[in-house]
């Protein structure tokens, strides 16, 4: 039963069909996969493969048409919008390609945002501020707390987003093309940050179409035509925040 408890994600033949009954569009054709606690996984696939649909379902933003999705042993396949919102608030952290920081809030306030929607949060405002400040320190932005997103570089904004994803201490972090809008140097910094989080025991699912980026992870799931085409262990494992074997052609400007 110990094995059961460490299963973060288990999907059983999940499928997703869009469109009308007469002209169904099958985005997912029955995917079964299991992700253990502490894994760092990349989901890859060409555009239109269904990887975004899979991510949306894993992120509890969408529900499968068929099949079951167990998140930490809880079947969330048929949850309504309010229940899903609660799951997202308590269990999940998101990192988006375009950061999605609210432009009118400071870095600190952006990090505090998920705490507002965490039901029955016992923390006072001051305690939340302290926690958010601590999270920003964790991503190296202790000097940028009162900056607004437009005063931060892309890499810095994505770090704020990482801090925001972590603030409610989720069991799973979902990153959708987190380096898609970043230059090489910032990309690597973000990936190293994710690597460090993984080292500390976080479970991270990263969606990307770049093989270079997938190589930072332990395990690569390849989605094609709505099916799981391959599931392989990545030999080139990240190894903490310091020494990393790299197969990337990107130059490191140290």
């Amino acid at each position: 039963m110990i094995k059961e408890a460490t299963k973060i994600i288990e999907t059983i033949q999940i499928s997703k069909v869009y469109g009308t009954e007469a002209y169904p569009i099958r985005a997912l054709n029955g995917i079964s996969l299991t992700i253990q606690k502490g894994e760092f996984i990349a989901i890859m696939g060409p555009s239109g493969s269904g990887k975004s649909t899979l991510l949306n379902i894993l992120a509890c933003l969408d529900r499968p048409t068929d099949g079951r999705y167990l998140l930490a042993g809880e079947d969330v396949s048929h949850y309504d919008r309010n229940q899903l919102a609660n799951i997202r608030s308590r269990q999940l952290g998101f990192i988006f390609q375009s950061y999605n920081l609210l432009p009118r809030l400071t870095a600190l306030e952006n990090v505090m945002l998920p705490m507002i929607y965490y039901r029955d949060n016992p923390l006072t405002l001051a305690e939340r501020e302290e926690k958010a400040a601590h999270a920003l320190e964790g991503v190296g932005l202790e000097n940028r707390m009162t900056h607004y997103p437009n005063q931060l570089s892309g890499g810095q904004q994505q770090r704020v987003a990482v801090a925001r994803a972590l603030i409610n201490d989720p069991i799973l972090i979902l990153a959708d093309e987190p380096t898609g809008n970043l230059d090489t140097k910032s990309s690597r910094e973000i990936l190293e940050l994710l690597g460090q989080l993984h080292e500390r025991g976080r479970t991270i699912v990263l969606v990307t179409h770049e093989a270079d980026i997938a190589h930072y992870t332990q395990r690569i799931l390849l989605i094609r035509d709505g099916l799981l085409a391959s599931d392989r262990r990545n030999g080139k494992r990240t190894n903490g925040g310091s020494e990393k074997p790299r197969k990337t052609g990107k130059a490191r400007t140290a």
Partner: peptide
């Protein structure tokens, strides 16, 4: 709309 989407993603219910 984007702000609404983000708030929902980080846990806001439709009621919120």
């Amino acid at each position: 709309t984007r702000e609404i989407g983000l708030r929902q993603a980080v846990g806001a219910t439709p009621g919120d």
